[in-house]
């Protein structure tokens, strides 16, 4: 999200200025809602994350020290809320799978080699394809999904993504690469089929 939205005063927020808080909600609810929608399968869950993010922000704004930007701080709360919700809904996931280094030895060799680049833009972005793009994101393991969303959808830098998720830049880069390669494979399977149909 862009920090160029008429500068929100952290000082006013910390004083408990309601109008300023409302301005912050107005400026950042769009990106936070988008992140939650793409992170979670159900719109109701996304709405819960949206509300909880700003409720928590309201509770903790006095302690916000401004070491990170306001947007990074909000993304951090939202990312935690979304990840907690996912884990609560899937309590059977073994703890080992959630550890920071799980599947670090995973092989991510690209599998799909269809050359779908040449498909025309209007075919790459039909409403069906758009739904397929979102579906591919939801198929990513959540650790990869959140990194991809923050970096490639929300446009955070590698460093900001690391701050948001308490990850080193190296870890962010590794996860980002894996996420992108998986998405490429997934889309390759889909667009490869479209390509096959055209050639018939």
């Amino acid at each position: 999200m862009s920090e160029t939205t008429t500068e929100i005063s952290v000082e006013a927020l910390r004083r408990g200025d309601r109008a300023e808080f409302a301005r912050m909600v107005e400026a950042y609810s769009g990106p936070i809602h988008r992140l939650a929608l793409k992170m979670l399968a159900h719109p109701q869950d996304a709405e819960d994350v949206l509300q909880n993010t700003f409720l928590k922000a309201l509770q903790h704004i006095r302690g916000f020290e401004g070491r990170s930007s306001l947007s990074t701080w909000l993304y951090r709360i939202a990312a935690n809320e979304a990840l907690m919700l996912i884990r609560r809904q899937r309590p059977e996931t073994p703890l080992a799978d959630l550890g920071p280094d799980a599947d670090d030895n995973e092989d991510f060799a690209p599998a799909n080699l269809s050359d779908w680049c040449c498909l025309p833009e209007q075919e790459l972005l039909t409403s069906e394809s758009r739904a397929r793009l979102d579906q591919a994101i939801r198929r990513l393991p959540e650790k990869l999904r959140i990194v991809f969303l923050l970096r490639d959808i929300e446009g955070l830098s590698i460093a900001e993504t690391g701050q948001t998720l308490d990850l080193s830049e190296t870890a962010v880069k590794t996860r980002l690469l894996r996420a992108r390669l998986r998405l490429r494979d997934d889309l390759g399977a889909y667009y490869g089929e479209r390509l096959g149909e055209r050639k018939k």
Binding site: D115, W116, C117, L124, D152, I153, R180, L181, L183, L187
Partner: peptide, 9 residues
């Protein structure tokens, strides 16, 4: 295709 994937997103 990786470049295109990121571009589409």
């Amino acid at each position: 295709t990786l470049r295109k994937t990121i571009y589409l997103y």
